[in-house]
């Protein structure tokens, strides 16, 4: 017994050390990005290691905030993310549950109906024409409706549902519950970990998605954060159109790397903070035990 315990704690020690080292490895670039974002061209460049800026300055942030309507874009992005996530999660659950029923007639047909959509898409032009013909151009709905059904998520969730013990449901059916009641009263509560995961995926998708916003949205008042991010990250330099007159994005003190770093910090802040809320649903064995009681 004694020997086993000692061996196990050595394993624990190594395991934890491994995770600490990994965390440091992951935190370093994040920290360097923060440092770069608070520096200017003279304080540090993207070359070399920077653990502390020569002096903390906020010019890069001011530059980003002066470039576009960042606050408005923030609000739009948050609204889009919340609405889009609710939509995706609901549709994922609604489609995944029936597909998880092995005895559902024509189940394969429906599965294939969803799968094909995962692999074949018409591409940009017909998508654009569709949005245009539906009158959704420059309408925020164009950002959440086309992606509301995500087949990848549906398959993952369906698979999860399929691992749920059938016994629980069968007893509910005998009690006279309909499928919708079973879904809301039994399936959803015990599937919290996977629903939370899909919700996280959906939220991150909506937070990061820029292409639809780029081609479907024209008004500045409806723009999203990633459009500003993309402008900064794809700019070859800060003075792109200066040669054609006017200052363009001219800034004398900053390097592109400072501005890019600030943009990244601005853009990932809120989304990084939601994970702890998701984690809450990862507590082991929720409900299952109580249901089986």
């Amino acid at each position: 017994m004694g020997r086993t315990r000692k061996k196990l704690s050595l394993f624990d020690f190594l395991n934890m050390t491994g995770y600490i080292l990994f965390s440091l490895l992951v935190l370093y670039p994040f920290w360097q990005t923060i440092v770069l974002s608070f520096s200017d061209a003279n304080a540090s460049s993207s070359l070399g290691v920077h653990l502390w800026p020569d002096r903390w300055i906020t010019d890069a942030y001011e530059f980003v905030f002066s470039y576009g309507n960042v606050m408005k874009a923030y609000v739009n992005t948050i609204i889009r993310t919340v609405a889009g996530t609710i939509l995706i999660v609901s549709f994922t659950v609604l489609a995944a549950y029936p597909l998880s029923k092995k005895d559902l007639p024509f189940r394969n047909f429906f599965t294939i109906f969803f799968l094909i959509a995962m692999f074949f898409s018409g591409g940009m032009i017909p998508d654009y024409l569709l949005i245009k013909n539906l009158g959704l151009l420059d309408n925020s709905l164009s950002l959440i409706l086309p992606s509301a059904v995500n087949v990848f998520f549906i398959i993952i969730m369906r698979n999860y549902f399929m691992t749920i013990d059938k016994g629980i449901e069968e007893s509910a059916i005998i009690d006279g519950a309909n499928y919708f009641q079973i879904l809301t009263k039994i399936i959803i509560p015990i599937s919290k970990p996977v629903i939370a995961t899909v919700a996280l995926w959906a939220a991150v998708y909506h937070w990061n998605e820029w292409f639809h916003a780029l081609v479907y949205i024209q008004s500045d008042s409806k723009t999203v954060l990633q459009i500003i991010v993309r402008d900064m990250l794809t700019a070859m330099d800060l003075t792109q159109n200066a040669q054609m007159g006017g200052g363009g994005m001219a800034s004398s003190k900053l390097m592109l790397s400072n501005v890019r770093a600030a943009t990244v910090i601005i853009s990932i802040g809120p989304i990084v903070l939601i994970y702890p809320f998701v984690q809450k649903y990862f507590i082991k064995g929720i409900m299952i035990g109580s249901l089986k009681g």
Binding site: A41, L238, A242
Partner: peptide, 28 residues
């Protein structure tokens, strides 16, 4: 450009506006 700024390179190509230090060319 950032590397040049560290002062280890002797030869570099430039546009007239760079050597005239036009605003838009700062940092280059």
């Amino acid at each position: 450009w950032e590397k040049y700024k560290q002062g280890k390179i002797g030869y570099y190509i430039a546009q007239p506006s760079y050597i005239a230090m036009d605003d838009w060319a700062k940092g280059r």
